[in-house]
Design a binder for these strands. Sequence first.
DNA 1: AGTCAAACCTGGGCGC
DNA 2: TGCGCCCAGGTTTGAC
Length: 286
Amino acid sequence: MINKQSIVGGIFLPELPEVETIRRDLEKLIIGKVIKDVKLHYAGFVKYPTPTDFVSRVKDKKVQGIGRRGKYLFIHLSDQYNLIIHLRMTGRIIYSNTKLLPDKHTHGVFQFKEGSELHFHDVRKFGTMWLVNSEEISFVSGLKMLGPEPLEKGFTLEFLTVICKKSRSKIKSLLLSQKAVAGIGNIYADEALFRAGVDPSREGNTLTDREINNLWESVRFVLEEGIKARGTSISDYVDGSGKQGDFQNFLKVYGRKNEPCYVCGKVVLRKKIAGRSSHFCSECQR
DNA sequence: AGTCAAACCTGGGCGC
DNA sequence: TGCGCCCAGGTTTGAC
């Protein structure tokens, strides 16, 4: 049997490109399907409503579309409901067109009427879901304060300029805050800053117009490259092995502590900035 | 307003 | 071999 199972988003640390790839994959797999039931093996990921209400609400809902905002995945359901998912760090969504045995980290199994399943799998149990109607959307924590989508029109150079100029926090911290740009995590923040040639410790209001322009361009570039790289890896159907892409080839600084910079040869440094591990080249980033 | 630490959680890497 | 410790990671919360 082919297409037996598909790991949709099987890689750690899902940021915007990973969530976007999951969105595209799910679009091909579950639109039009009707949810028969959901089994909760660990209910802690359900943030709203109560697990009992979550189960009863989701039954008989039809999947009408898949959306994304920052790192939040939206499953648009019938009756104006949205299943909103944040995978946090280790969350995965696994699709199978047959019944699939849950393992110790499978916390929820959505069963569709025609026999396929969507498993929510999360080793560290940080991932969360909300099932809300339009009046309850404000219950989804973190959603309101999201900045513009970096790959859409709202993320203008002018917007980033204003955000930087009025901020005294470190630029790395600003990128991670979700308010300057939605969907950037630690990996893409480090990669964007490297590409822009900006030291992650710099305060936002010290960046020149030229640096902000570089950063604006770099943020979009690395996210687009990320989508391209992940797109090839995840759309492959696998038989349980969870084939992954060549993400490593894409990274210039992240995870390369003490390895030579590809541009200048100096070793890539790693240090905590604003509480996050940050990788950078002190020669290429000023 | 900012920064920082703690909390959430568990597997993996380390030293001994 | 195995124990104990510490760490990573995104986000929220609370303290200064």
